[in-house]
Amino acid sequence: NSYNFNKDYIGDSSLLIASAIIEKTPENKEKILDFISQDEDGIWYHTSLENRVVGYDNSKEVKIQNLLEMIPKIQNAKIDKASTFAAKTPNITQFFDGFNIASFEGLTKESCSSLINDSKASYVELALKNEDLAPYSSLVNKKFSHYIAGDILLQAKDNNADFLVVRDSSDVELFDAQQSSIARIMGRDIDMPVISQKQFVQLLDGEKDEAVLGFDKHKIAVSFL
C-alpha cells in the first residue's frame, strides 16, 4: 500500500477530513487542495483500499477520487486510466499447454483467468493482481508506481510465470516499456514478457505476426511465438 513506498504520505484520513472541510466551507477549497497536493506526501500517493479491506466503505474512495479530480495538475494531465478489453470469446486455435500465465487486473477485477485456463495453460494467481497503480503519482514521482509494478512483476517471476497478461496498452507501457527502470529500483533482474488482454485474445485466435500483434514494439522480447 501507499506507506510501503512513501512513509511520508499524509494518509487517507487526512484526505477525508479535507473533503469534509471543502464540503462545509467551499471558500477554503483552494487552500485545502494546495495543502493535500504537495509533491512529497500528498494525494498523489493514495492507493485504494477497496481490494485490500473486507467490507471497505467505497464512499470513502469516491470522496478521494473527487478530490483528485479537483486538482488542476490532474485536470490538465493526459493520463489514460487503464481499462479491460471487452472481447468476444475467441475461437481458440493456438493453445498454451505447459505455460504458466499470470494476469494483472487492477481495480477493475475483470479476470481473464478463464481465458488462460481455456488456453490449456496453468493460471498463476497473484496476490497483487488487483493492486492500485496510483497512475497520477507519475505527475510528481515516477518511482512510486514503478515500485508497485515491480512488486507485481517479481511476484509473477517468483511464481514461475512465463508471461504476464495486463489490461491494456497503458499497462503495457508501464510493465514492459519501463521494466528496465523498474528492475533497477527493485534491485533484481526481471525480464518478464508482458502482453495486453487484447494481444492475448489475438494470440488465441491464431495471430502470429509480431507487427500485427504489436510485439515488435515491446522492450522485453515476447519469445514464445
Rank of each mutant, 00 (worst) to 15 (best):
T93F: 00
K143G: 00
N58Y: 15
E105V: 09
S138F: 01
S137Y: 00
S83H: 07
K109H: 08
Y136A: 00
V54C: 06
E50A: 07
I92K: 05
A82V: 08
G55D: 14
F99W: 10
K143N: 15
Q65D: 11
K157R: 12
K63C: 02
A82S: 15
L107S: 08
S59E: 13
I101F: 10
D41E: 12
I71T: 04
G55M: 11
I152R: 00
N58L: 15
K73Y: 00
E110Y: 10
P72S: 09
G42R: 07
K73D: 06
K63N: 08
M70T: 02
E50F: 01
S122L: 13
T84Y: 13
Y45H: 08
A87M: 07
D151W: 02
I64D: 03
V124C: 07
I148D: 03
H46P: 02
L49W: 12
V54T: 10
A127S: 14
Q94P: 00
G106M: 08
E131W: 05
N141T: 04
V54A: 11
A149I: 05
A127N: 15
Q65S: 05
H146A: 01
I43V: 15
A82Y: 14
F99I: 06
I116C: 02
E61L: 08
S122Q: 15
V54P: 02
Y123H: 12
D97L: 13
F85L: 08
N117L: 12
K63F: 02
F104V: 08
Q38N: 10
K143M: 01
L128F: 10
G42M: 12
P90F: 06
I74G: 08
S113G: 04
A77W: 11
S137A: 15
N76P: 07
F144W: 07
E69Y: 09
A86I: 11
D39N: 15
Q38L: 06
T89G: 06
N76S: 15
E40Q: 15
E110P: 01
A77I: 05
I148S: 02
V53M: 12
Y147K: 06
G98D: 12
L115D: 02
T84M: 01
L128H: 10
A127F: 09
E40C: 03
L115E: 01
K78E: 05
Y45W: 11
Q65T: 08
H146V: 00
E110R: 11
F99R: 05
S59F: 12
G42S: 12
Q155N: 14
A127W: 01
